[in-house]
Design a protein around this nucleic acid. Structure first.
Lengths: 167, 167
DNA sequence: ATAAACTTTCAATAATTACTGAAAGTTTAA
DNA sequence: TTAAACTTTCAGTAATTATTGAAAGTTTAT
């Protein structure tokens, strides 16, 4: 496999993975492109490479910046804006985990908490609802805490954690 | 909050969460309904509760069975088929993690492996592609192994693991 | 064998989500 | 202050994904 083919394969795989993570294809592809690029890219560059419109590029870059994954790079003497993505996979993971927790997990925890706190009226179905949503609540809280814990160990966290768990 | 309200809230929250997990709303809602139900439900019951069509119910139940989350329950003397879901949250997590790994993570690992194994032609951009996809590959492999490890500790895994990690 | 009771399939349609492109907005340089 | 160079916005449209409902399929009882 040659460079161009490998690049296309990587970008398109990353793009379709994005879809089932709740971020759209274009957004994931832009991030992928920046991730393997040796220098910052302009909007023009991105549009050209991925064959997407200016509007699409602008909106998705904005979202990536909202996530904190992509940043503007000012190149002296240039009018255009250039973009780069976080290049360190562990830092990238940390940012994504934190954002997903904030955006998706926390709201769910809140609902599970509300639902599992309703008054027990003594009926079997109410007892079941409380029991099951409480179990989900506790699981979610603990898993979320665990991921945050893992991910905040800046240096070499995965390896370290794995070693701990295996023994 | 009363039972009916809490139930509706739980089902709809679970449903919309499903969406950003790559499983569709109806599928997640059916699972949620079964999860808090005290007894097995028929297709009729599910259609009625969630206000969805017979075809939709049938297809999504099938998918849930493919995932191994829902099973048919035969009730003696009854013609209809009844359905239940795994009720234990830890077992549920184990099944979901395993399936997601198989369906989504493994294919990505394969591509990352292919892409990061292309021949280094000495150019900077090829070096960058190899370096970055290799980093992603290693991270993905390790994280996947870690989740599997965690999740396969049948009893009380989350709590145990957290304790280990914190100290 | 027939029919009643049920489930599955799938073409048509609806609902949702993503994308475009041109107009409006902004910034910088002269 | 004007205009060139650039970015953002958003109404319209395209693409994708989910849902329906009726016909076809299956199973069980008689």
């Amino acid at each position: 496999m040659k460079y161009e083919e490998a690049k296309i394969k990587f970008i398109s795989t990353w793009g379709s993975l994005g879809t089932l993570w709740g971020i759209n294809k274009a957004m994931a592809q832009i991030q992928a492109l920046l991730f393997i690029s040796t220098e910052p890219l302009s909007m023009e560059d991105i549009m050209e490479e991925l064959q997407i419109s200016r509007g699409n590029t602008s909106m998705n870059l904005r979202q990536l910046m909202d996530w904190g994954i992509v940043t503007k790079e000012l190149i002296p003497g240039e009018r255009k804006e250039y973009f780069t993505t976080e290049k360190d996979v562990q830092e990238l993971t940390r940012i994504i985990a934190k954002e997903r927790s904030r955006r998706e997990i926390q709201p769910v925890i809140k609902v599970l908490n509300e639902v599992s706190s309703i008054k027990d009226d003594g009926t079997e179905k109410t007892k079941e609802l409380i029991k099951q949503t409480k179990a989900l609540h506790d699981l979610t809280v603990t898993a979320d805490a665990m991921v945050n814990k893992l991910v905040n160990q800046k240096q070499n966290w995965i390896t370290k954690s794995l070693i701990k768990l295996i023994k």
